[in-house]
């Protein structure tokens, strides 16, 4: 029975299918033709900086916001035409906690349970269960005003799980959490997926996407600029990146040209000044680069090697999409491996 009802008409294995979603706020196009396909039972990460359109996209998928154009289906159900069905299949945890500040944790969970159709006794039982599961029992009676950020997020997530929805939207679930609480949140998310749920999460951190997501879409200026598995995405910027600080700003352009020549990659000059960042696929080539710097009389102030960060993935993807006037896929920047 559970299996059959999960097989909804024509949905195949897709939890989310979105095509060409567009949303304008006044003159500002927040989401500009986003396509997303999320396989049921997976964790899908939407990665991007503030204001890229991540939250707006999630809000459209979660029936909180009406798209200006495009379509989206959740387990085969149209988010606009069958919104009330979609709401029975999803749980949403917002960026800011979507719980009632003036009430206690128990009261919050009981009210949400009652709204979802549970009886009085059932609601109380459910609330107790969830409080225990999320380690909130001790604080259950206190007003939320005194809750820490981590406790609030946990309660928020607990509230999203009352109806045991097969698809969960988590909008920046760990932004602002300390590392320990963040790790706990990651464990919880993994546990959810192991129990059969699908999770679509947004994040600003590559590391988070790296830890959790099976596939990632990078969003910038309301568009998907890259999509793929974590490994595909990372290899597009090289395994590590080389950071060079040049002593004399006058040499910056020359140095940059040398980097691109010798390493055969695209480099990025940091906005705050004389630092060049370039993907480093082959560490051996760096020797050649340093020799060529010495020959041209370019003085280095500092040299370091860093694991890829969202910045690099992001900058390299957006740089190349600017240059080519087309959304770059992970493959198109694969030349960097050379």
């Amino acid at each position: 029975m559970g299996f059959e009802s999960r097989k909804l008409p024509n949905n195949g294995d897709w939890a989310v299918e979105a095509q060409g979603l567009i949303k304008n706020f006044g003159d500002n196009r927040a989401v500009d033709g986003v396509d997303l396909n999320v396989r049921a039972g997976s964790i899908y990460g939407v990665l991007g900086p503030n204001g890229a359109g991540k939250t707006t996209t999630i809000r459209m998928l979660a029936t909180l916001l009406r798209a200006d154009a495009g379509s989206a289906r959740i387990f085969g159900h149209d988010v606009m035409k069958e919104s009330q069905i979609v709401r029975q299949l999803i749980g949403v945890t917002g960026q800011y906690a979507s719980v009632d500040e003036s009430l206690s944790a128990t009261e919050n969970l009981i009210i949400f349970s009652r709204l979802l159709g549970l009886g009085r006794a059932e609601s109380r039982k459910k609330a107790m269960e969830l409080l225990e599961e999320f380690d909130l029992t001790e604080a259950a009676k206190r007003p939320l005003k005194n809750f820490s950020g981590g406790m609030r997020r946990r309660l928020d997530l607990a509230a999203s799980l009352i109806a045991q929805p097969p698809l969960l939207f988590l909008d920046e679930p760990t932004t602002g959490l300390d590392p320990r609480t963040r790790n706990q949140m990651w464990d919880t998310i993994r546990r959810l997926v192991n129990s059969g749920s699908t999770v679509l999460l947004t994040t600003q951190y590559l590391q988070e996407a790296d830890e959790l997501a099976d596939r990632i879409a990078v969003i910038d200026h309301g568009r998907v600029v890259a999509e793929g598995t974590v490994n595909e995405l990372k290899s597009s910027v090289g395994t590590s990146s080389l950071q060079l600080s040049i002593q004399d700003d006058k040499d910056l352009e020359v140095a940059r040209r040398k980097v691109e020549e010798v390493l055969k990659v695209k480099s990025v000059v940091s906005p705050e000044g004389s630092r060049i960042t370039a993907p480093m696929a082959d560490a051996d080539l760096v020797t050649d680069l340093l020799i060529s710097f010495r020959q041209s009389g370019i003085q280095l102030a500092e040299l370091s090697v860093q694991k890829p960060t969202l910045d690099e993935v992001f900058l390299s993807i957006t740089e190349s999409s600017k240059g080519q006037h087309e959304p770059s896929s992970v493959e198109s920047s694969g030349g960097m491996k050379g």
Partner: peptide, 11 residues
Amino acid sequence: MKTTTMTQGTK
């Protein structure tokens, strides 16, 4: 099919 907590939701 993993049928623990979540799939019940679709019943």
